[in-house]
């Protein structure tokens, strides 16, 4: 399968990339690692006039400390993030979720920010980023703006990033000392999640003091299970207490029905997996 013809540009700076986006409008697609874009092109689901490769832009490659947060640049691959001591120490949930993304080869090329903009609801990156209250750093013709993760995911494969804009980084507040677990439910180990549960909890003296729960593939965007988070606070970190708080996680969600499972099945499994994720995150 050969992609359709397109022009190719590899700008060296963000401002060059933005100029190309402004020039080409909806004819342009941005390539970072290409691990989602290339399959789309090969299957001819999209036929851009120009592919703008941002992987050679040095200024957006780093993973750095930024006050209370860790800033992951748009050029950082999954593997870069997995190898980052900052991420391991302060963003355990993201680290765990990324170990479940596809396979080693894909993780060597694909990028966290690329996956966020691609916004596949079955991808593993959105739920932890949403649960950890990330801020998206977007650059466009009018300069830089920041969008909360809760306002970033608009719909299936659609985000707050405009056609003339570039997601240059994601800033994720540190969750140092939080327990974390990503429970991914799949038939084939390197495939997309049938559903996934991203859970981070802060336990004090055996009791859950704070909880954050994100859901993968339980709707057209990653979701935040706020009612479960509230129900978990003050509960003992035991299987029974957690199970009760998690049982209704599927309420109000609109998961897809497909060959891997019907919507009602996903809602049921979500309750089971949320319990498992939270118990594991709490160290149980």
């Amino acid at each position: 399968m050969i992609p359709p013809e397109f022009d190719y540009a590899a700008p060296g700076t963000v401002s060059e990339a933005l100029a190309l986006l402004a020039e080409h409008g909806d004819e342009a697609k941005v390539l970072a690692g290409g691990q989602s874009l290339l399959p789309v092109l090969r299957m001819r689901l999209n036929a851009p006039g120009i592919v703008i490769d941002i992987s050679r832009i040095e200024e957006i490659k780093g993973i750095t400390e930024s006050g209370d947060a860790v800033r992951i640049g748009a050029g950082a691959t999954y593997q870069d993030v997995l190898d980052s001591a900052l991420v391991s120490e302060h963003l355990g949930l993201l680290h765990k979720a990324l170990t479940e993304v596809a396979d080693a080869q894909i993780r060597h090329r694909g990028t966290v920010c690329g996956a966020l903009v691609h916004a596949d609801p079955a991808g593993d990156v959105g739920a932890p980023v949403l649960a950890l209250d990330a801020r998206m750093v977007i650059q466009g013709p009018d300069g830089e703006r920041t969008v909360d993760a809760s306002d970033f995911f608009v719909d299936l494969f659609e985000t707050a990033v405009g056609e003339d804009e570039l997601l240059t980084a994601v800033e994720i507040p540190k969750h140092t000392g939080w327990g974390a677990h990503y429970e991914k439910f799949v038939r084939v180990s390197h495939q997309w999640a049938i559903i996934g549960i991203a859970a981070a909890v802060r336990v004090e003296g055996g009791t859950i003091a704070e909880a954050k729960v994100g859901l993968t593939n339980m709707g057209s965007t990653p979701l935040r299970a706020t009612s479960v988070e509230q129900a978990l606070v003050g509960k003992e970190a035991t299987e029974d207490a957690v199970a009760e708080a998690c049982a209704q996680v599927g309420e109000g969600t609109d998961p897809p029905s497909d060959l891997n499972g019907q919507a009602d099945y996903r809602k049921h499994v979500a309750g089971v997996l949320t319990r498992r994720a939270v118990v594991a995150a709490a160290g149980g």
Partner: peptide
């Protein structure tokens, strides 16, 4: 597979494994 699933086309790019059906030559 030509769909980036099977890994038969794996090569090392700058020392790390990649699926060469999922990388452009220009990259």
């Amino acid at each position: 597979c030509d769909t980036s699933n099977c890994g038969a086309c794996t090569v090392l790019l700058d020392g790390r494994s990649v699926k060469s059906c999922n990388v452009l030559a220009v990259q």
